[in-house]
Computed example of a mutant assay.
Amino acid sequence: MPASTAPVRLVLASQSPARLATLAAAGVTPRVVVSSVDEPAVLDAARAGFGGDLEPADAVLVLAQAKAEEVSARLEDDSADSREFEASALVLGCDSMLELDGEILGKPADAEDARRRWRAMRGRAAVLHTGHWLVDARDPDDGGTGGTLGASSSTTVHFADVDDEEIDAYVATGEPLHVAGAFTIDGLGGPYVDRIEGDHHGVVGLSLPLLRELLGELDIPWRSLRDPR
């Protein structure tokens, strides 16, 4: 039986402008509902459940799942108007971390932390892991399966051998303080990334090819997410 091509609403459980822009550039306009999960608590619970430390690709996936499921549950508990608006909705949660020398790096704590990280990263390679989790919160009448699934993308990033003055100038822009790994590839940090190995969308924070694969596992074609033209 062919997959349905009926339009499907997407809810993005992330406040990341880069993720929103990535979807918009691909013709998808989601509703943004930011999750309120306690990320350290989620990771602590996951470590306790697994009986030890998490691999970076697993850590971002655990957080992505927590965000997607928290937002999905909150939308279900909202007013009748909200439930009606969110009928036929998929909820997507994402999380990114940079792995350098076996250490997981999220957003820097402050400007000095960002400078310290850049001094460690310059002229070297690190791996940016991004977790993706989908919750099919559509009504059964609209084809909803109740499915929940996810996967992580991992991309190797080669950083330029920038000097201290360049690092100070970049950190002074404030951008590194708001992103995982203290850098962007699609913004002011782009000139300081020499090259990547893997999906550049994953470095931005949302792998479109991986999202398409996850949709396929729910029998949802990518084109059903695109805005009507």
Results as ranks from 00 to 15, higher is better:
H178S: 12
T184Q: 02
V204L: 05
D141H: 13
T145S: 06
D161C: 09
T148F: 00
D168M: 00
A172V: 03
S152N: 10
V157Q: 11
D186S: 14
A160D: 13
G187A: 15
E175S: 02
H158K: 08
V203Q: 14
L149N: 02
G189M: 14
H201G: 07
S152K: 08
T148R: 13
G146R: 04
I196E: 05
Y170V: 05
T184Y: 12
T173H: 04
S153C: 07
I185Y: 11
D142K: 11
T155Y: 06
A172Y: 09
P140Q: 13
D194T: 10
H178D: 15
T156L: 08
S153F: 00
D142R: 14
R195T: 12
F183K: 02
D142G: 15
I167A: 05
V204E: 01
D141L: 14
G181S: 10
I196T: 15
T145H: 00
D142L: 07
I167G: 07
V193L: 11
A151Q: 13
H200M: 07
A180V: 00
L177I: 01
V204R: 01
S152D: 05
G181H: 08
V193G: 04
L188F: 13
V162T: 15
V203N: 03
A151C: 10
G174M: 01
T156Y: 02
E175T: 03
G198C: 09
F183C: 09
P140G: 11
G190H: 15
R195G: 00
S154F: 08
R195I: 03
G146V: 03
L206W: 13
V171A: 05
S152E: 09
A169W: 11
G202Q: 01
A169K: 07
A160Y: 06
V157H: 12
Y192P: 05
E166L: 14
I196A: 05
G205T: 08
H201V: 00
G202F: 04
V193C: 09
G198V: 06
G143Q: 02
A180Q: 01
H200L: 09
D199P: 02
V162N: 08
G147S: 13
A172N: 08
G146H: 10
I167E: 06
A180Y: 02
E166S: 15
P140Y: 11
F159A: 02
D163E: 12
D142W: 12
A151S: 14
G187P: 12
V204H: 08
S153V: 11
T155H: 03
D163L: 06
D186L: 13
D141V: 09
G146Y: 08
I196Y: 06
D161H: 11
A151G: 10
D199K: 07
G190T: 15
P140C: 06
L177R: 03
V157F: 10
S154G: 14
G143M: 04
T173G: 05
E175K: 04
F183V: 02
G150T: 05
V171M: 10
T173C: 10
H158Y: 14
D168N: 04
L177P: 05
F183T: 03
T184H: 00
D142S: 14
L177W: 00
D164M: 08
D163V: 09
E197F: 06
I196H: 13
F159D: 06
G143V: 01
E166Q: 15
